[in-house]
Amino acid sequence: MRTVSKRLALVLAFAASMAGAIANGWAADGPPAKELFGGVKLPTRAEPSSYGFYSKGCLAGAVAIPTDGPTWQAMRLSRNRRWGHPQMISLLERLSQDAAKYDGWPGLLLGDISQPRGGPMLTGHASHQIGLDADIWLTPMPSRTLSAAERENISATSMLDTKKFLTINEKAWTPGQARVIMRAASYPQVERIFVNPAIKKKLCDTWQGDRTNLGKVRPYYGHDYHFHVRIKCPADAVGCKDQADIPPGDGCDKSLAWWFTDEPWAKPKKDPNAKPAPKPKPMQLADLPKACSVVLKSPAADSEWAATYSPNGAAPVSALASPPQPAAAGSAIAAQMPDVPPADVPVPLPRPTGN
């Protein structure tokens, strides 16, 4: 009896330890969250809502920006990252229109926004998870429509001098890049804009316009060929977590000067006697807000709905898109291209016009 009781106690102790491990997301680890969200092709049919933080969350009710607009073209179509919260998509379309009208910018080349249901991405980003981040190339849009192949292969232009550390390439940088960045910063819903430290310094040294919003432009690693726009959580997004407020001032101070020292770029010193650090565990679904499990498992919206949906029966997200076209085999937008995106990449129909 004592042996049986001892064995039972061991079994119960093991079960308790496993239950604790599962509760902490250890033994229950399945595929990484990036594989789950990266494999979804279409959004949920739901009211738009962002859950969690920019680098730890998901998105319901996403809409995709059309592949082409009057003043923008989407790049890297095969990634299927043209989806976002309707407020993000609306802002991008407005920025493209305003920059063309007021700043002489020929149009935006749009990089990654978010996946159909947000969440971690297989490659490239820690953020962009809740549909409120977008990358905009610093390369001006050409006057012609790019083919799908060009959108996959053309490289964005870096604004940095390759021979001088953190120095702007004066042949690539123009006042136009400064104007479109500051135009984006001027919108109240924009929370931050990330640029390379050299770009921030260039703006600090040369921007002659209103400097009220210059503090929103934040220096960060990379971001030399695009700028990253982040908007605030929508007012009705209860589960969305805003970032901390930016410090007061224009950011042209010691915090910027720090980026031009050795400290940000120095490799961490290794202790030869230290044990190898364990490999970081990929983010799991259990690590995300609970709502993300529901978002991931919800039925998919059809591509027509995703392109035309407007919350609460209000006017469509876009007032710039062409009138709706009948849903025929394939996409009218894709058919206009010399070659089309891969067949498994959804190309939403144009949204109807509205005010």
Rank of each mutant, 00 (worst) to 15 (best):
D262G: 02
L95E: 08
Y102I: 05
G249H: 07
G20C: 03
G84K: 14
N213E: 12
E263W: 03
S155Q: 13
S303H: 10
A60H: 05
A198D: 13
K202N: 14
Y221L: 04
G118Y: 08
A46L: 00
A134L: 09
V317L: 05
K202G: 03
G209L: 04
R230G: 01
A100P: 00
M159A: 14
P43C: 06
A178C: 01
N213K: 10
A334H: 05
A62F: 03
G107Q: 06
T167M: 04
A301I: 07
K163N: 15
N312G: 11
P268Y: 07
A178E: 12
P234R: 13
P219G: 05
R230D: 02
S147M: 02
A23G: 13
P282V: 10
S78G: 09
K201R: 15
Q97H: 14
A100C: 00
Y309V: 07
I65Q: 04
P323C: 09
A46I: 00
K267T: 13
S78T: 11
V11E: 11
P272N: 07
H226F: 09
G249A: 12
R2L: 14
K267R: 15
D98E: 14
M141C: 05
D112Y: 13
A274W: 12
R144E: 11
P323E: 03
E304S: 14
P140I: 06
L110D: 07
Q115W: 01
A60P: 02
A277T: 14
K200L: 06
K269W: 04
P188D: 15
S49D: 06
Q208W: 00
T67I: 13
V63H: 00
P142W: 09
K200V: 06
N80K: 14
V347A: 02
V63Q: 12
P276H: 08
P70Q: 10
H223E: 11
R183G: 01
S255R: 15
A321R: 10
N196P: 02
D161A: 03
W105Q: 08
L166I: 01
T206H: 05
A62W: 05
D302K: 07
S155V: 01
G124A: 09
G209Q: 08
A149E: 12
Q87F: 00
I130E: 10
K297V: 04
K171T: 14
